[in-house]
């Protein structure tokens, strides 16, 4: 069983949602990335979403845009991101790692080389924000051949046909974008989101993660009642951006995530 499938099976038994923090690889420093991943896991993160920086992150709000710009200015490259995952895996073989980014850097490396290198490094899933399932048929096959889950997004605007397409092509889980907007945007209407996700869950037969606009423990607790996973991104990236040293960043990440971990662990996942 894949790490992601294992995680979701285990949490289904435990009756709770996963907490998945997002951080941009190479921010706030090159040396902080791997220690931060370990610190997040030590504080209770169930999986890690690692952002692959891109020069033109069109679906991201200012927090993640700036983090990408800073990382690129430090010289972060896709191969370095994969190397960090490999390093993380030398002492952690159980926590799923999902890479999130945009198609062009992956295409520049070549989808086959990327999939092979990512599989070797120990990557479990890949989200390419601008790769729709229609355009991504080839890429999805190559990723799956390497045992990596191609994870697609669904949005409040997605109709039944889109749901069916994602169902036929995605694996691992489906990422539900909670609002019409970019990462870090204003809060969604959570009642509406949870209702939609309940339907989606039944239609998709795959775990559903909810992300975008989730910034604090209260929201995590609310979302965790109806999601298989809760993704927190910009709020963590903001915390890290303010840190001068790796030590500070690790302390800030731990301090930030602890109440969120509390929130998922004390919330019962209903209707799964």
């Amino acid at each position: 069983m894949s790490r992601l499938a294992g995680l979701f099976a285990q949490l289904r038994d435990a009756g709770r949602a996963a907490l998945i923090p997002f951080m941009t690889a190479g921010d706030p420093s090159l040396t902080a990335t791997v220690p931060l991943m370990h610190a997040l896991v030590a504080a209770g993160a169930d999986a890690i979403e690692l952002g692959m920086p891109f020069s033109d992150p069109m679906a991201d709000g200012p927090s993640i845009q700036r983090a990408s710009e800073r990382a690129l200015a430090r010289g972060v490259k896709l191969r370095m991101v994969l190397e960090w995952v490999r390093e993380f895996r030398t002492t952690n073989s159980h926590t799923p790692v999902i890479l999130m980014g945009y198609l062009n850097p992956v295409e520049a490396m070549g989808i086959t080389s990327f999939a092979e290198a990512a599989a070797t490094a120990g990557v479990d899933g890949v989200i390419l924000v601008d790769l729709t399932p229609e355009e991504g048929r080839g890429e999805a096959v190559v990723l799956r051949q390497q045992g990596i889950d191609p994870i697609f997004l669904l949005a409040p605007t997605s109709g039944p046909e889109r749901v069916a397409t994602v169902r036929s092509m995605g694996s691992g889980f489906v990422y539900y974008v909670s609002l019409r907007g970019i990462t870090g945007a204003a809060q969604a209407d959570w009642a509406e989101v949870l209702e939609r996700v309940q339907h989606l869950h039944r239609q998709l037969g795959l775990p559903v993660a909810i992300g975008f606009g989730i910034r604090d423990a209260a929201t995590v607790a609310r979302v965790a009642t109806g999601a298989d996973a809760v993704v927190v991104g910009s709020a963590l990236v903001d915390q890290l951006a303010a840190c001068a040293t790796d030590q500070d960043a690790i302390a800030a990440a731990t301090r930030f995530i602890e109440p969120l971990v509390q929130a998922v662990r004390s919330t019962e996942r209903r209707g799964a």
Binding site: T132, E134, E135, A155, T157
Partner: peptide
């Protein structure tokens, strides 16, 4: 083609 975030596909 059409390489955009899912939210825009229906639009």
């Amino acid at each position: 083609g059409r390489f955009v975030a899912e939210t825009l596909v229906p639009a």
